[in-house]
Design a protein around this nucleic acid. Structure first.
Length: 529
DNA sequence: GGGGGAAGGATTC
DNA sequence: TCACGGAATCCTTCCCCC
């Protein structure tokens, strides 16, 4: 693999730690130099050792795959090829080119906000974030010693909180007007006169949005970089939005030929969902771009799971989802903390209790209760363990979470006894939420979001839309449950409900939106005119 | 053998 | 000399129970 160097021996640079310059905006960097710096400053650390271990595991996976490949017969290959061809035919027959998806990406969101607040930072290398990530491991400083470090101001966080918890994700997934509402923050007239948005239909949409009465509610006065990817489906739109960084848009016409040409040379790593491990596994088969993917489909069908090869086939044909998912239900909620080595039992239990309290607060804000409690532990060697327990009925209260987590933690402590458990991370997750029928809808409505925005500015009181949560009748568990199911409904009632409190993942690119344009605003219409 | 839970891993931002 | 986040989702594999 070109990014990995001599990785299989463990002596060269670890491919999994190499700079990923496959992303837009990373071109032209001195990759070798940066990789040497990463290597020099990482080698020998526990983190590096653990990464090496993981790399070896991937190499073993590849070895097993190659062994499997060696045993594939012509007959098997031929049969798989028939299956692939049939499936390709089926997929082609339902290929939907009727929709235009616009993927909106906010590039370097945090940096953009900080630059707005401090214009001197413009055009200077900058790092936004806590210094723990930069100083404790100073590769960042070595690579770019003259960078300006900025602690994140509360501004972006507030915006994200309004946006994420308040429904920016949902806003972005609503109709086109409300979707683009999020990006109204850019001075559209300025942008237009500078010719940054040469596309009349899109400008029309943006202008249209600007005139929408709700815009003012979300006007943050920010100057953000917006990337647009326009394509017939979500997968392609996502790739397209990454195409013309930093100030641009990329439009892929809605016809099969254009899609296939676009796909031909597209590196597999560019596709969302294909990460460094999959890239490496495919690379071992000589597959680096989507055209190879199509050529080797029969082989992939024999070597990968059905889910995986179906996904590969979709990619090779330039297919993706053409509907915008709204209101995705949350599946889990978690909190975790990294710290210096912690071996004392009292400290570990105390932290465990604290995490349960924090998580319980967040769960109760969203009126969520789950049946499965998972304890996540990472030891000082970066080895991660998760231990889960499923209760007969859903819990949300801190003491109930702690009762389970404490038991799981105790088991792990006992397992290594008399040695202490040397931890560097602990986390608690709750999942298996009660079914959608049993709980109220969560923060998905733009109307609610806007109402909340008004409530924020006009009244200090929180809007509560709490409804009592009905309990599911739990199935009898396979194991003896040490935790009886108390009257949980009573506990959740009377809790203040905060429907707009966020759970933000913290990526810097902010967006991932898709909209359906009306006929009159579609790129073909513009091209025709 | 199938279903479902547990555990671990990949991926994304 | 030491030293790499946090949250969420999906997938795979393993294992147990019916």
């Amino acid at each position: 693999m070109e990014t990995g160097g001599n990785s299989s021996s463990g002596e060269g640079f670890l491919s999994r730690m190499a700079l990923n310059d496959n992303k837009a905006g990373m071109e032209g960097l001195d990759r070798d130099k940066i990789n040497k710096i990463i290597m020099k400053s990482s080698k020998g650390s526990r983190f590096y050792e653990n990464e090496m271990k993981k790399e070896q595991q991937v190499n073993q996976r590849i070895e097993r795959m190659m062994l499997q490949k060696a045993h594939i017969t012509e007959q098997q290959l031929s049969k798989a090829q028939t299956q692939v061809e049939k499936m390709t035919f089926d997929l082609e027959s339902v290929r939907d080119l009727s929709r235009v998806i616009v993927h909106v990406d906010m590039d370097a969101f945090y940096a953009a906000v900080e630059t707005r607040d401090c214009p001197d930072l413009k055009d200077k290398p900058m790092a936004v974030g806590s210094m723990s990530m930069l100083v404790r491991f100073n590769t960042g400083l070595l690579i770019c010693p003259k960078h300006h470090h900025v602690s994140p101001s509360p501004v972006p966080r507030n915006i994200l909180q309004k946006g994420a918890g308040g429904g920016a994700g949902a806003v972005l997934k609503q109709d086109r007007t409300l979707c683009l509402l999020c990006h109204r923050v850019v001075g559209l007239e300025t942008v237009a006169t500078q010719g940054l948005w040469p596309d009349p239909p899109l400008l029309q949409v943006l202008t249209d949005v600007q005139s929408h009465q709700a815009c003012n509610t979300f006007a943050m006065g920010l100057l953000l970089i917006i990337l647009l990817g326009i394509a017939p489906n979500m997968m392609l739109a996502k790739v397209c939005s990454d195409k013309n960084k930093p100030n641009g848009q990329y439009r892929l016409p809605s016809n099969r030929q254009a899609v296939m040409v676009f796909i031909q040379d597209l590196p597999v790593r560019k596709v969302s969902g294909i990460g460094k491990v999959t890239e490496k596994m495919l690379g071992a088969l000589g597959i680096t771009s989507c055209i190879h993917l199509g050529q080797e489909m029969a082989l992939l069908a024999l070597l990968f799971s059905e889910t995986s090869w179906h996904h590969f086939l979709d990619i090779s044909l330039g297919l993706g989802s053409t509907h915008i998912e709204r209101d995705g239900e949350r599946k889990s909620m978690s909190t975790e903390r990294t710290f210096g080595e912690m071996s004392a039992l009292e400290e570990q239990f105390s932290l465990c209790r604290q995490l349960c309290q924090d998580l319980a607060q967040e769960l109760q804000k969203e009126a969520l209760k789950g049946k499965t409690v998972t304890l996540k532990l990472k030891n000082v060697n970066f080895e991660v363990k998760t231990r889960a327990w499923t209760l007969p009925c859903a819990v949300a209260a801190s003491d109930k979470l702690f009762a389970v987590a404490k038991d799981l933690l105790t088991t792990e402590i006992d397992n290594v006894s008399p040695q202490p458990l040397r931890l560097r991370l602990m986390g608690i997750r709750v999942s298996s939420f009660v079914s959608a029928d049993d709980k109220k809808p969560l923060q998905k409505s733009i109307v609610g979001f806007l109402q909340q925005g008004r409530a924020d500015s006009s009244s200090p009181t929180q809007i509560s839309s709490h409804k009592p949560v009905k309990e599911h009748q739990p199935k009898p568990p396979g194991q003896t449950q040490p935790f009886p199911c108390p009257s949980l409904v009573q506990q959740s009632q009377g809790q203040e409900d905060h429907p707009w409190v966020p759970s933000w993942g913290g990526g810097e690119d902010w967006g991932a939106a898709a909209v359906l344009l009306p006929e009159s605003l579609r790129p073909e219409a513009a091209a025709a005119s």
